[in-house]
Structure formats: structure tokens, C-alpha cells
């Protein structure tokens, strides 16, 4: 493609412009792009056509149909449907994350090198409760292993620990409110 501005060099940059509410796309060579637009030392990730990636991964609309109700999954809080999410590449609200949860693992795995769970900072207000919950989860896993290996004393000890933590969680919730 030839540059829209100089008509000489080949275009290497697509520039989207908003003028009087209309979005126009310009195909520019790197020289004209530099002239027209701030060098824009692109600190910001370009959207990398996220919606394009998404629609490549979900070519059919199969994924957007709720397997039980047989209808298109829609977020009741913001009205985004799963196809709309794919098309935009953006969530409409926090509830979308729960509504679209069955499909999200697959998507997150691809964007984040196989990861699906956050392991970083936790806001202080969520901190203690969430930490205890994650501990309980871990203890339950260990308990299953113990039962499987028929280490029942160990399993009983772990069960008691879970009880202590669970009561802490309930106590913390009621005294905290």
C-alpha cells in the first residue's frame, strides 16, 4: 500500500484519526507519520488488535452460547454479550468477569503465557480475608492428599486447622462490619 499523504513511499503505519465524530484511517509511510503525529514514543501498548486475536481464537460463535440455557451469554449488569466482548476486546464491567468465566481461562492462558490466576498485590481491605481463604484452600488440598494416602491422623489435624481458620473468617467478618 502506498502512503496516503506523499503517494511515494510504501505505507507502514496506520493512523486512526477522529474528526468531527468520524474516525478516518490513514495509511502513512514512516516519514509522513512522523511529520503528522507526535513521535509518540509509544509508551502505551498499541491495542495489538486484541479483538482480532480474540476472533481468531473463537472463530465460531459456539463459545458464546450458554450450554444450559442455549442462549447468548449476556452480562446483566452492563448488557455486554460475549460476542460484543470478543468484537471490542474489552469488558463492560466487573461482573462480565463472572458472567463470561467459563470462556475466560482459555483467553487468559493465551494472553498470559498459560496463567489464569492472580498472585500479586491484594488491596489491604481484601487482604486478611483473602489470605485466610487461600490458606484454607491450601489446607483442604493437603487434607485430600492425606486421606488419599490413608494418613487419617494427619487429615484430622488439618481438618482442625481449617475449622480454626474458618471460624476466624466468620468472626472477622461479623466484627469487621
Amino acid at each position: 500500500m502506498i502512503c496516503d499523504q506523499c503517494g511515494e513511499r510504501s505505507a507502514s503505519v496506520i493512523v486512526k484519526q477522529q474528526q468531527q465524530g468520524q474516525i478516518t484511517e490513514l495509511h502513512l509511510c514512516h516519514i509522513c507519520a512522523a511529520e503528522n503525529h507526535s513521535i509518540n514514543i509509544a509508551f502505551e501498548q498499541d491495542p495489538l488488535a486484541i479483538h482480532q486475536l480474540l476472533s481468531n481464537w473463537f472463530p465460531t460463535s459456539q463459545a458464546s452460547i450458554n450450554p444450559v440455557k442455549k442462549e447468548i451469554v449476556t452480562c446483566p449488569s452492563c448488557g455486554f454479550t460475549f460476542p460484543k466482548f470478543l468484537q471490542l476486546g474489552k469488558f463492560g464491567c466487573a461482573s462480565c468477569y463472572d458472567e463470561f468465566a467459563p470462556q475466560l481461562n482459555e483467553i487468559f492462558k493465551r494472553f498470559h503465557n498459560g496463567n489464569t490466576e492472580h498472585t500479586g498485590k491484594i488491596p489491604a481491605s481484601y487482604g486478611t480475608t483473602l489470605k485466610i481463604k487461600k490458606e484454607i484452600e491450601e489446607l483442604r488440598k493437603q487434607m485430600q492428599v492425606s486421606i488419599h494416602g490413608e494418613h487419617f491422623e494427619e487429615a484430622a489435624r488439618l481438618r482442625d486447622e481449617v475449622r480454626v481458620l474458618s471460624s476466624k473468617l466468620e468472626g472477622g467478618a461479623s466484627s469487621g462490619s
Binding site: I50, F91, A94, L104, H112, N115, E117, H118, G120, K121
Partner: peptide, 25 residues
């Protein structure tokens, strides 16, 4: 800010963002 504002945070997914490429941290 988090002491004074209520952030959208998910136990599994972390900080919730508009774009799936920013979720987590």
C-alpha cells in the same frame, strides 16, 4: 488510593481491567 476508594478486585483474577491483557496486576 485504595484506602479511600473501592477497587474492583477479584479473588482469582486480581485487579479487573477493561482489557483482558491488563488483568491481574
Amino acid at each position: 488510593l485504595e484506602k479511600n476508594l473501592s477497587y474492583a478486585f477479584h479473588e482469582k483474577y486480581g485487579y479487573l481491567t477493561s482489557c483482558p491483557t491488563n488483568v491481574g496486576t
